[in-house]
């Protein structure tokens, strides 16, 4: 069966090669060439709307985009349907933030956009242009962990680690706004993240123990 689209094909792991290995080997762009070339757009258009000209549509094929990720400009070519998470994971080799539910329901993909946490799996990459995007890759300075990452390590706040990047981003966003949250405030700020391994107690401990977070 031919993969129905990019979303499905990524779930399809029959090759025997690990997905990450495959993606990294093929490299950015290779995976992008997707199945919908030649898709025709059936267009309800401005005529009906009775207005002059409708503004131009882009896509459905790949279009050039520029993202500002962790302070760096990233030029990619992706389809309008590509999410910010998939753009970074599949087209830019940045696999730090995880794709778990892909439905805005778990938080593993959490990034910080313009200072606020967002589900990158439920944000279109084209719509993330012009915004300040921060992902888990942007936190550590070389081999020095960000204070939140350090606190997670010290509190042993992870088991399988799949939810961890998202939790760390949510904790960073919280602490940059509110360096001394109460337990209730911290719980509420971390509400949008789920951990199947049940590390909540230590995640909370890490978030509350972290010292010295300032946007810098």
């Amino acid at each position: 069966m031919a993969p129905k689209d990019e979303t499905r094909s990524e779930l399809d792991e029959r090759s025997g090669v690990s997905r990450r290995f495959f993606l990294k080997t093929v490299g950015a762009g290779g995976v992008a060439a997707s199945v919908i070339d030649g898709l025709q757009e059936a267009l309800p258009h401005a005529q009906e709307a009775g207005t002059a000209a409708a503004p131009a549509a882009i896509g459905p094929g790949p279009v050039p985009i520029t993202l500002n990720v962790n302070g760096q400009r990233l030029s990619l070519k992706v389809e309008p349907r590509t999410t910010l998470l998939d753009a970074l994971r599949n087209h830019a080799g940045q696999t730090g933030n995880k794709r778990v539910c892909d439905r805005g329901s778990c938080g593993a993909c959490t990034m910080i956009i313009d200072g606020r946490t967002r589900y990158a799996c439920s944000t279109l990459a084209i719509e993330a242009q012009g915004h300040d995007i921060r992902s888990i890759e942007g936190l550590a300075k070389g081999t020095v962990l960000h204070p939140v990452q350090q606190a997670f390590a010290e509190a042993d706040g992870m088991m399988c680690g799949f939810c961890t990047p998202g939790f760390v981003m949510s904790a960073v966003a919280l602490l940059e706004k509110n360096p001394h949250p109460t337990v209730e405030e911290a719980k509420r700020a971390l509400d949008g993240n789920i951990c199947r391994c049940g590390t909540y107690v230590r995640v909370l401990e890490a978030a509350l123990k972290t010292k010295g977070v300032a946007r810098g």
Binding site: D5, L39, E41, L43, T51
Partner: peptide, 18 residues
């Protein structure tokens, strides 16, 4: 796959609907 219109305002958005 879909195409995408970044409507600048209400008028443009309306003109793009069907």
């Amino acid at each position: 796959a879909f195409s995408y219109v970044d409507a600048a305002n209400e008028k443009d958005a309306l003109a793009s609907l069907g």
